[in-house]
């Protein structure tokens, strides 16, 4: 599904990614953990196609294609979804309208017919129910005035409608109350499928109680420092990140 090899990148003259190697197979869920400022969001944004970053080396294959050669909208249509750490507000643009445009852009690229308004409304209502979002969100602007938790829920709603092959969720669990955390986790688990993969960027083990990862990686200083199974997350919870730095030096 995704193969990142020795990826390096910088912004404003500062090296942020320093040789990232990561392979995510179809059907797997990976958790990416690591201290603030270590470059997790940078990696996610680069994968999604943000051009503020200068890629200085390495390669990324997505289903065997050179991901870095595609513009962001084509990456999205090919099935890559980024759940943003800070979803942006777009005032006056209807939340549902944007989502319908997104779905149709994807379908068009796949040579499928566009969904009509009725079909779409039925679909979105069903997904909103699943995400326990009130129908008032049908008429509101994209993230306009949404609370922090509502924005995250809305990201997952979009993911459910777009059914990506690879979802990268950047701290989608941050700022959620306990109930919302369950709802969001259910959303992610409902997408679990042998042909789909998820990369969860998170600071908290508690998310991984609900969404059990196949692999856990510790990101530090712009690279993956250590990888393991779900027990690594438990260990991080207990011991923090410092011991890893030390063990590396040792």
């Amino acid at each position: 599904m995704l193969k990142i090899s020795n990826l390096t990148a910088r912004v404003a003259g500062k090296n942020i990614l320093n040789g990232v190697d990561l392979e995510v197979n179809a059907g797997e869920i990976h958790a990416l953990m690591g201290p603030n400022g270590s470059g997790k969001s940078t990696l996610a944004q680069i994968l999604a196609g943000r051009e503020d970053y200068e890629i200085t080396g390495g390669s990324v294959l997505f289903e065997g294609r050179d991901l870095l050669a595609l513009p962001p909208e084509e990456r999205a249509r090919a099935g890559l979804f980024l759940g943003f750490q800070y979803p942006v507000e777009i005032p006056g643009v209807n939340n549902v309208y944007l989502l319908k445009a997104a779905l149709n852009a994807k379908r068009k690229a796949a040579g499928e017919p566009e969904v009509d308004a009725y079909e779409f409304l039925a679909l979105i209502k069903q997904k909103m129910k699943f995400m326990q979002m009130s129908e008032s969100f049908l008429t509101r602007g994209v993230n306009e005035g949404f609370s922090g938790g509502e924005k995250k829920r809305n990201e997952v709603l979009q993911m459910l409608v777009l059914e990506p092959k690879l979802a990268i969720l950047d701290e989608t669990d941050s700022g959620l109350d306990i109930d919302a955390l369950k709802v969001v986790s259910n959303g992610v688990n409902s997408l679990r499928d042998p042909h789909r993969s998820v990369v969860l960027v998170t600071h908290y083990q508690r998310l991984l109680d609900y969404i059990v990862p196949d692999r856990v990686h510790v990101f530090s200083g712009g690279r993956i420092l250590k990888s393991g199974d779900k027990s690594l997350a438990l260990e991080l919870e207990k011991r923090g990140y410092d011991w890893l730095q030390e063990s590396r030096v040792a």
């Binding site: 196609g49 979803p87 944007l98 852009a105």
Partner: peptide, 14 residues
């Protein structure tokens, strides 16, 4: 907003 624009692009919108 570059952020707004990127958000839309990331959703597959031209």
């Amino acid at each position: 907003g570059e952020d707004q624009l990127f958000y839309c692009l990331q959703r597959g919108i031209s």
